[in-house]
């Protein structure tokens, strides 16, 4: 587990796909490479999809755990911003 401290925090428990990942992606774009974003999300689809999408986008999941102290069904994920993956482009 990383000893790093999140430099930003995002609560997306009120949102559904695809807004959950879009908001996380925007928040990641606002921190520096290597910094950590803490995301609070709901169990189920957000817990499955947000970490997976982050990894597909070149970021790293360094913590994924229940966060009952934040509310029933809440999970916490720490995402370390990675180097942007090579951008696909339009023709």
């Amino acid at each position: 587990m990383s000893a790093r401290v999140p430099s930003a925090r995002l609560d997306i428990r009120a949102h559904t796909c695809p807004v959950t990942w879009v908001k996380a992606r925007i928040a990641l774009s606002r921190i520096a490479e290597g910094e950590v974003l803490e995301v609070l999300l709901r169990d189920g689809e957000p817990r499955e999809n947000v970490p997976r999408s982050a990894e597909e986008d070149g970021h790293r999941v360094i913590r994924l755990e229940p966060a009952p102290e934040e509310g029933e069904g809440t999970w916490r994920v720490w995402l370390a911003r990675g180097a942007p993956v090579e951008e696909r482009t339009w023709p």
Binding site: P18, V19, W21, V22, K23, R25, R88, T89, W90
Partner: peptide
């Protein structure tokens, strides 16, 4: 963000 969520995920 909600209105353009899918577009925001497009390449570029």
């Amino acid at each position: 963000v909600a209105r353009y969520a899918r577009q925001l995920l497009l390449p570029g």
